[in-house]
Simulated assay, not measured.
Amino acid sequence: MAPIPFAIIGTNWITRDFIHHAHSTQKWQLRAIYSRSAETAETFQSSLSLPSSTADITIHTSLSALAADPSVSTIYIASPNILHFSHARQMLWAGKNVVIEKPATTTTKQLEELFKIAREKKVVLVEAFRHLHEVNFKKLKEGLSKIGHLHGATLNFCQFSSRYDAVLRGERPNVFSLEFGGGALMDLGVYCVAAAVELFGEPVSSTYFLKIIPETESDGGGMLVLRYKEGMTVSCTFSKMWDSGMGCEVWGEKGGVRVERITDIENVGFWDPRRKVREEIGGEKREGNLVEEAEVFAKLIEEEDWEGVERWERVSLGVVRITEKVRRECGLTFPGDEE
C-alpha cells in the first residue's frame, strides 16, 4: 500500500518529530507544508532530513490552497491551540483526514462539530495523544487486571518550561497565553486527563486547584482531582513552573502498578504488598515517541476503521468535557468560549 500523502500546519518541534517518526514507519509521505510565510516554510523544510522521494514538497501560504491540494489526503495540525478548531474545520470540509495535536479544541461544542463534519465527509479525525499508544502505557492498562478492585491513582506530569522564565522577563509566549488557549492544564494536564479517561473512563466529578501566574492570568500548574464511583479518586498533578520526580501509581485491592512518568514510559512495575514482591510487566520501549501513534493513525486511515475512530473519539470528548468544565469554573477564559 502506498504511503499516506500528508501536509502539515504548524512548523515547530512537535511537527518535525511527527514528520520524522511518521516517515520511519514507511506509511506516511510529506507532500506539502503550510505557513503564512513562505520563508518560514522553506526554512522549516530545509531543517528536515527526508528521503529523496520527498524532495518535491509544495509550499502553501494559503489555507484555501492547501485544502484544495489534490496531492494530499491528510493534514497534521500543530498550530497554536486556539487555531486548531478553525484549521481542522476547513480541512475536514475539504474532505481531508485530520490528525490534530492535543488539545484538539478548547470547547466540547467545537469538538463535537468537528466529529460531525468528519462523519458527514467520511474522513478520519483523530487527536494526537501520543502517550496512549505507547507499548508501556498499554502494559500499564493491562496491569490493572492484576490489582483487583481499584482504590485510587495519582498521575503526574510536572516539567519546567524555559518559557516560564520568558514570562518573568515580561514576555508573553503562546503557551502561557489565554488568548492562544495556553496554560498548564491545556499543555501538560491533558496528558494526565487523557490517561485517566483511557484507564478509568469519565469521572462523576472534577475539581481543579490551580496556581495562577499573575503576569499572564493563566495557570502555571496545579492539581486536578477526579472522583469516580465507589469513592475512587484520581489526582492529576501537572506544572510548567516546576519539575517533579513523582511517578504515577494506581492502587488496588491486590497491589499497585507504577510508572516513572505518564509519557515515554520505560518500565512498568507491579507491586504485591502481601508477598512484598515487585514484578516488571513492561515491554520494550520503541525508538521515537511518535512512531506508535503514527502507526495507529495510518491503520485507521488505510483500513477506514470507523469503529476505531469512534473509540478514540470517545476518549477525546471525555477529555474536553473535563478540561472545559474545570477551567471555566476557575475563570480561565479563552476566545471562542461563547460561540
Rank of each mutant, 00 (worst) to 15 (best):
A2M: 11
I4Q: 12
P5Y: 12
I9N: 07
I14F: 15
I19W: 03
S24M: 09
Q29R: 08
T40Y: 08
F44K: 06
S47M: 07
P51C: 06
S53A: 15
L63Y: 05
A65D: 15
L66V: 13
S71G: 09
S73C: 06
S73F: 06
Y76L: 14
I77E: 01
A78Q: 07
R89I: 12
R89V: 11
K96P: 09
K96E: 05
T107N: 04
K109H: 04
L114S: 08
I117S: 04
A128C: 10
F137K: 02
K139V: 00
G148A: 14
A153T: 03
C158N: 04
R163W: 11
Y164N: 00
A166N: 02
G181K: 02
G181N: 01
L185S: 00
G189R: 01
Y191D: 14
L199F: 11
G201A: 03
G201H: 03
T207E: 13
F209K: 06
G220F: 05
L224T: 09
E230A: 13
S239R: 00
W242N: 09
M246Q: 14
G247W: 03
K254M: 12
E260P: 05
D264R: 06
I265V: 15
R275I: 06
R275T: 11
R278I: 14
G282I: 11
G283E: 00
E302W: 02
R314M: 08
V315E: 05
S316Q: 09
S316E: 12
L317G: 07
V319K: 11
E338P: 01
E339I: 14
